[in-house]
Every structure is written in structure tokens, then in C-alpha cells.
Design a protein around this nucleic acid. Structure first.
Lengths: 192, 192
DNA sequence: TTCGGAAAGCTAACCGTTAGTGCTACGGTT
DNA sequence: AACCGTAGCACTAACGGTTAGCTTTCCGAA
């Protein structure tokens, strides 16, 4: 049994962070496509293979908070107040996530993502993973009151809400509209 | 101005088809990952660069009907009967597309796609392109009666319906459920 | 027939990614 | 305190998809 108490984990996390920071810095300085994996590895002073042992692909260097995002969504479902309905809980969390990505100094990063097809593509499949995780969480609570298909659909819709709102000119207004639609979709499946 | 009368176009189309057919055959024979671009090019008796002048990526060799799919969706909107509402028209077309992909001899191809991460990923981003094209078509007709956000959302939902139904154990039943939800979502945005 | 241009070809590379192998240092055990 | 087992990291070398640069071929229009 191992509940590793420390140094190793800290060093590993430090290496990972150093790689991520270096990568983001280089990407913003010179542009995502103009920076190669070998450049990042050299600048972070690690081997290429080490980089790939921390991140599954070049694009993942940009989406460091991947796991966080997923966890926040699923927890929004599992940790909500006992009397709070599903959709409003989802709405609150998605709103928070959208605010987090449209505010403050996140502009340059999202501009970079939007202008790189590879990054856009990677984000899409990442979001789909999140949708599947969210679907599993929702199914765990609502099947068999609702069918698995309905649960999966709502999960997809919630992710779509995030993506569409982020792209909209007025993210929060867009989110209101979309969640009104999601609410209607969910309500129509209420069992007798 | 050129309305090229023929031979060139025919030869080009023939080359394209030969590449696609060869690729699909090899993929099904030996497995997608086990067949390299150079193998396909050699077997189709063309240069690698020629192959890439017809298809933008290896994965595209598998999704030859890409453009068809998109066109069928957008035409389902534009060419529907004057009195037919949007959602039922979408539902009909998506149902046809799902049937087309779950029936007959399409099994092996979809099995191959499902078991290759690269192909799954490629399909996702392809579907998203379709959603964007569909969104543009819907917007062209319904803005400003509905907001652009609502139109884009419905387009996404329709694509999600296709994907989710195809994955479901009972595709047609799943499609019924999902389109009931989409109908509710669309209705709730009806202007006063 | 001649000529512009599109299609196809070849070579050679670029770049992300992955084996394969071995070394080092940490952590728990004796 | 000495000792393993293993996780983290390094290095080399390659693989496979993709592209650039340039040449060749051949159709179609004038």
C-alpha cells in the first residue's frame, strides 16, 4: 500500500507545472504552430518523452484545467442541495465556467485556441468526454426515472450550452436562452 | 469562364473514387491502423501527394459521404414543404440518416470507426462542421423571429440527436425521445 | 497547333508521437 | 542503516501523417 506522502509527488507536479507554464508562455510569445514540441521540452529543460509522460498530446498543454472542468460539472450534480432540481444546478455551474473563461486575462489564450484548428478540434473532443462523464453522473441519479437516452441528451445539451455561450457576443444572455430550452426539454420528459 | 465538358472532371472523379475504394478495402481487410497512407497510395497506384490533393486527411478516406450528409441536412430545411414546421422536417431527415447508417452492410465500417480513436475524433469535428452549416441555414430562415443563439442551439441538438441515436441500443426509439425534447426546446422559444 | 493551367508525380523533409532501454532517486521495509 | 521495488526521467531512433518545392503530363480553349 502506498499513500505517498510527498516529495515525489511534489517534484512530479513541479515538473508538470514547469512544462505547462513554459509551453503556454512560448505559445503566446511565438504562436502555437510556430512552437514545436522539441522547443517546449528544451526550454522547460526536460526530455521530449518526459513531456509526453505528463501530457497526452501537444494540444493538452493548452488545456491544463481539463480535469478540473469535468469535476466541477459532475460535482455540480452530485453535491447540489438535496432539494435543488437538476437543471438549475447545471445552469449555475455552467454560468460560473463561462464567466471564468470570458473574464479577466483569458482573452489571449482563447484567441489562440480559436485561431488554431488543431486546438479547436482538440477542445471539441475534450468537451465530448466531459459530456460523457456528466451523462454517467446524471444517469447514476436519474435512471430509471428518466431513460439513459434522456440523461445523455441533457448532458450533451449542457456542454453545448457552455460552448455556444462562450462563442456568443453576449455569453450570459445566450446562456439564459439556451438553458430555458434545456429546462423545457427536461420538463417534457418528466414521468407520469 | 469554363464549364468543363468532361474528361478532366471524369478522370479526377475516377481517381478520387479509386483512392476511396482502395482505402476502404484495405482498412477493412487489415485494420485502419495497420494500413498506412503510403500503402493506400501504392495500392491505388497514385502518389501520396495526389491522395492528399483529394482528401484532406487519412481519416477523410473513411468519411467519403461527408459532404452528402451536410447537404441532406441543410436541404431538409430549405426544401421542406411550405407549411411543414422546422423540427418535424429535421426529425424526418435525421431518422433517414440514422437508418442509413444502422442498416444493411454498414456494420463493419461503423465497427472500425468505433474502435479507432482517431476516427471517432475526426467524426466529432465533422459533425460539428455539419452543425455549423445547419445553424447557418436555420438562421437564414428564422432570424430575427428567433435569435441566432436559438438557431445555433437547435442545430447542435439535431446533430446530437443523430449521434446519440446511432449509439443507442434502439436507435429509432432513442430518436423519438430526443426529438420530443428538441420540440419542447424549440416551442419554448416561440415569439409572442 | 499552340498555349495556359489543372492534375498528377517525385523527392525530401517536418513534426508529433512512440518504442526500447537504462539510469537515478525516492519511499517503504527489514 | 542498508536494501529493494518502482516511478520519474533521459536518450536515441524511428514511425507515420502531412506538406513544400518542383517537374511532368495532358486536357481544353483559342
Amino acid at each position: 500500500m502506498t499513500v505517498p506522502t510527498g516529495r515525489r509527488e511534489r517534484k512530479k507536479a513541479a515538473t508538470r507545472q514547469k512544462i505547462a507554464d513554459t509551453a503556454l508562455r512560448l505559445f503566446l510569445e511565438r504562436g502555437y504552430d510556430a512552437v514545436g514540441i522539441r522547443d517546449v521540452a528544451a526550454e522547460a529543460d526536460v526530455a521530449v518523452t518526459t513531456l509526453f509522460s505528463h501530457f497526452p498530446a501537444k494540444e493538452a498543454l493548452v488545456f491544463e484545467q481539463d480535469a478540473d472542468f469535468e469535476q466541477r460539472l459532475t460535482r455540480a450534480v452530485t453535491d447540489r442541495a438535496p432539494d435543488e432540481p437538476l437543471v438549475p444546478a447545471l445552469r449555475r455551474e455552467v454560468l460560473a465556467l463561462v464567466r471564468h473563461c470570458t473574464g479577466e486575462g483569458a482573452g489571449p489564450i482563447w484567441h489562440m485556441i480559436d485561431s488554431s484548428p488543431a486546438l479547436r478540434k482538440y477542445e471539441e473532443s475534450m468537451r465530448l468526454r466531459h459530456a460523457e462523464a456528466l451523462a454517467a453522473t446524471i444517469e447514476a441519479e436519474f435512471v430509471p426515472a428518466r431513460t439513459p437516452t434522456v440523461c445523455r441528451t441533457i448532458a450533451r445539451f449542457a456542454i453545448a450550452a457552455y460552448t455556444l455561450a462562450r462563442e456568443a457576443t453576449e455569453p450570459e444572455a445566450a446562456l439564459d436562452e439556451i438553458f430555458q430550452m434545456i429546462e423545457a426539454a427536461w420538463e417534457t420528459t418528466r414521468p407520469a
